[in-house]
Design a protein around this nucleic acid. Structure first.
Lengths: 253, 253
DNA sequence: AGAGTTGTTCACCACGGCGGAACAGCCGTC
DNA sequence: GACGGCTGTTCCGCCGTGGTGAACAACTCT
């Protein structure tokens, strides 16, 4: 666990314990200790601290992640102007298409959903606000990548790799670069079951005045429904239109 | 900073730095260091760690709380069955009253909003999902207190006190106890500008089969509008009805 | 170019985080 | 009801590391 930097190890283990609690959906001291391969007493001390600070709850010996994180998360989301600008557009996208509409931003080289809305026909998938996804295997992520400087794209590929999620996932750097060029020309991106089998996705970027990409919008639904004109014309048009509204709103405020 | 327990100090300072970042809406190393009275280098090391772990973002020397917290927060909220049961009721309460409707739970002796909805006439206040409020000065909090065992109420008063928020805030223990008795008899609670001037609130508890209070629902609006029959009859009735729906839904699932 | 910021690095030192073992509660089982 | 087998908790010692202040670097303003 030792690192060359002056980085604080205790904090890292605290965070790792929290992430483990999330992964296990709540657990006891020994379970976490075994899972992470650290001493029971260490885990106990961390959990005691986190509980005292009200970031973790303990009930009947089962520790769970607390709502303190919701406070910090919602707070930071509400402070993002892109969020309040994007939310109405995501809602109307969901209403107009009847499918699932999402908005995401890039953070530390991964995509983070900031809001989503379900249309009347929407299939529920594994996404929720705050959910993090790899950029290369989603339409949202690929539009964002297409707008980032190439140097940054290389960095992201370097650190995150191009892990395969389905048989359609782009796992080759050159292939991805070509795809990004195509997306940039086209103005929007497709996800043809590259992250989840059966799920198609269209996404368009929201670009600020200075040319930096601030977010991406997407509509996703089952391959059986998202096809033909809808896939190639209607949804892309709706997305570009919504993105445009947001871009204008952000420029004048 | 030393404590008698085996509690981890490094984690505490990390958390304190994060809370400070939230309070300051983003800040640099020196600002945080001065504000907390700890060494620059210490703050720097913590922020570097937190950035590396992707809990904090750094842009142009300004550190901000990251969306990682949203991930954990949304995740834990979505895992609460009370959340998905309460959400539709909160929405319909907002629709029926036109005002702001909320749901909150108790955590570590404070009230935490888990969801809210704005009616067409709703005034925007300072609440958001995840927001934490003292229990004694809100209708939501008082209904929860009224359903908790007295021993627990005493504990909470002990640790949190009864700080004055407005001139109407109940700051006396005996007075609060009497109010809780009245609430228990009545089945719902009032907030007559006890937390914010001009804001009135009605709340009802959601109680599980075993008698433990799991959440509270509320409707809030300006004193000028929330009055008369609405305040004393209609809204309380809507709240009790919604609470009942949730209670039944939770019992059979 | 200077003086004021800032963020970063460095090396030292004491203290506290880590771990192992011992202790304490709690639940079933035979 | 004493016994294992499981928890969570406490205790203590030692090595490691988190905290610090001062020196360094990068940067913005006069």
């Amino acid at each position: 666990m030792a690192t060359q930097n002056n980085t604080i190890d205790a904090t890292k283990t605290s965070l790792r314990i929290i992430e483990e609690l999330k992964r296990l959906d709540g657990a006891g001291v020994t379970t976490v200790a075994n899972e992470l391969g650290i001493a029971k007493s260490t885990v106990h001390n961390h959990l005691q601290t986190l509980t005292e600070e009200e970031y973790v709850n303990c009930e009947d010996g089962i520790y769970r992640v607390g709502l303190r994180f919701l406070e910090l998360g919602e707070y930071t989301r509400n402070r993002m102007d892109i969020y309040e600008k994007a939310r109405p557009e995501v809602l109307s996208l969901a209403e107009e298409t009847g499918e699932m509409a999402n908005a995401a931003v890039e953070e530390h080289g991964t995509g983070v959903y900031i809001t989503r809305a379900e249309g009347t026909e929407a299939v529920s998938v594994d996404t929720y606000a705050g959910k993090r996804v790899k950029l290369h295997c989603t339409a949202l992520g690929k539009t964002i990548l297409a707008e980032l400087p190439e140097q940054r794209v290389d960095e992201i590929i370097e650190t995150h790799g191009l892990p395969e999620r389905t048989e359609n996932t782009i796992t080759d750097t050159d292939e991805l670069k070509a795809e990004l060029d195509a997306i940039r020309d086209r103005g929007y991106a497709y996800d043809r079951e590259e992250r989840l089998p059966g799920l198609r996705c269209v996404a368009a970027p929201v670009v600020a005045e200075d040319g930096r990409v601030v977010a991406a919008l997407s509509v996703s639904g089952p391959t059986t429904r998202i096809k033909g004109d809808l896939f190639h014309e209607k949804i892309p048009e709706l997305l570009r239109s919504s993105a445009n509204v947001i871009e204008i709103n952000m420029a004048y405020s």
